[in-house]
Write a protein that binds this DNA or RNA. Structure first.
Lengths: 338, 338
DNA sequence: CTGAAAGCGCTTACAG
DNA sequence: CTGAAAGCGCTTACAG
């Protein structure tokens, strides 16, 4: 049933019915109620394609993932928060997957050109990210999950990566550790740079010489965590503590520690950054893991919120947030062994 | 730029331009090339909302998730495959999240009523799933990931859950195990029933009495795996082998085994069903895990394919597949200890 | 507060 | 092989 039929059936014009359904103020309360009740009864729902064409709004927000749709756990949790939030406002979320970074530009051009989305969420920004000027050129509004160094302001939500890793490093230094390793993410991302900075700042603050051999970069997987930790343990002077950038890396690191016949928490202290996955809790590990925690799911929800506000015309300057990160001390960190 | 402007610019009618761009056969080759080149040069792309309204096709496929968007790793991998495949054909994927099962019906009604999607993918079916008759009533085409007992045929792709767990159980029995535990998924799903069946069939075949205390059900999380395994180990006669329904459960089970001071592979054999996650490989665990493996990502891709074919009018009877599952033997399974 | 009608940007049956 | 025009199902400026 379409609007024409439906409005004929209830003896009102299409105009009035449309307005009643869309919540416009100029409809009499009684009329609105009648329309809503009838829509419910007849099961009438406006055709979204027609609405979108008529209003010029796509009613959707886009997000592009590299790696051919190999969503990691971080992306999934983030998406869960984002889509749940956007759904409240009836906004669809359009996921595009591309193979490499080179295809990403084409994806944005396509999204913008075909008016398929009203805005996009940009994630995993590099320190100087070419996608930001591109989106500006395309006139496609965007919210960044993370930060980037740019001349012009933009909407973003980031967590305090620097502060988080600084807190973790400081906690370990307080326990007497002097050889502290860091398993960080890929090298181009701003978040990895910020974490490196937090780490180095505290080392300097405590008069600990930074050893490049104790700093590793790689994907947030169990395997990378394992491999990097094994390399650390094979050093002439292995670390007595390690900070893992994610729960996945931490699982691998724990494994490497055990394989080496060492104990987590007594021989080697371990802190992980936890993005909070419902299926993997740090307090359930043995020993329970000390973490810096920040639910990436909540960040997804908040970014959905910000995207909506951006589309309502809020200036980007008021859409910039940095979330603090808590350090939660559990059993995996302890005094440095002599 | 819209079609009117664009076609005026290149001196052709909207009709011809539209046909050239959509690949209709009646356009002269030379004209088509001219149009495509011009579209590229001017950056013209048809407005998708207008296309959708004109054609009556939503150009999108829907999928509904329960649990408020708390996507587990299985959903994510599946979605990666699905969206990558659909994207090849320019079909969007529309994710709806609902809280509980009760809200799911409303979600389908909304998707169907507003013509937001052309078809949906139904997942995690129960043995008798009310959503199947509902979708049929709504006239919304669908492909099921999994199977369900229904009178009428429908399109589906499932893996051979029964055969997979039967193979795992048989492998353990061959190694001399007589007390084999199974950590299965939730109880209502068809896949869990099929796995139970495969397990029980082999126990019967080998003359092993089934002990209900060795059969556990729950979410595929690290925590559930841990909890169930601890319960098994606390039995008067604990199992010497265990089959975990997912890699997540297996991680938890391994942890429980270690916490009990036992070794995986020597004291307790472990087989896991592996849906293949890029960030967690069974061969990287210590010991490497024996698994029944079936990439859920590939299943997502294939289901995208089937959905497309369904929309092209292929009969559901030709859209029914059951994938065999391989048993890959690694170090986590060994001879039963006396 | 309500309605007639134009317009959103496409596709496609029909005519040539 | 190409084009003029109707139609997809809404929204909304304008008029009353």
């Amino acid at each position: 049933m379409n609007l024409k039929e439906f409005s004929a059936r209830i003896g009102l014009s299409q105009t009035t019915v449309s307005r009643a359904l869309s919540g416009y103020p100029e409809v009499k309360q009684e009329t609105r109620e009648r329309v809503l009740a009838a829509a419910e009864r007849f099961g009438y729902r406006p055709n979204v394609s027609a609405q979108r064409l008529a209003t010029g709004r796509a009613g959707a927000i886009g997000i592009v993932f590299r790696g051919g749709g190999r969503f990691g756990p971080h992306s999934s949790e983030f998406m869960g928060g984002l889509s749940t939030r956007l759904q409240e406002d009836g906004i669809d979320i359009l996921v595009s997957t591309v193979e490499g970074a080179g295809d990403e530009e084409a994806a944005y051009r396509r999204l913008a050109g075909s008016k398929r989305v009203d805005a996009v969420v940009l994630h995993s920004p590099a320190c100087e990210d070419a996608r930001i000027p591109l989106l500006r050129t395309l006139g496609l509004p965007f919210v960044v999950h993370g930060r980037s160094d740019t001349a012009l302001p933009f909407a973003y939500l980031d967590i305090d990566n620097r502060g988080a890793i600084a807190a973790a490093t400081r906690h370990l230094a307080d326990l007497g550790h002097r050889r502290i390793a860091l398993i960080n993410g890929d090298t181009v991302s701003t978040y990895a740079r910020d974490r490196d900075r937090g780490y180095h700042a505290v080392l300097a603050e405590r008069g600990i010489a930074a050893d490049p051999a104790l700093l590793g970069h790689g994907e947030f997987t169990d395997e990378t965590g394992f491999r990097l930790m094994q390399a650390f343990l094979a050093l002439p002077a292995p670390p007595t503590a390690v900070i893992a950038g994610s729960m996945m890396s931490a699982l691998g690191a724990m494994r490497a520690i055990r394989v080496a016949g060492l104990g987590v928490g007594n021989d080697i202290s371990l802190v992980a950054h936890d993005d909070v996955f419902p299926y993997l809790s740090p307090e359930n590990l043995v020993p329970p893991l000390t973490t810096t925690q920040s639910p990436i799911r909540a960040a997804g929800g908040r970014i959905g919120d910000m995207a909506l506000r951006l589309l309502q015309g809020e200036p980007v300057e008021s859409l910039q947030e940095v979330w603090p990160v808590d350090l939660v001390i559990r059993g995996s960190t302890g005094p440095a062994q002599a």
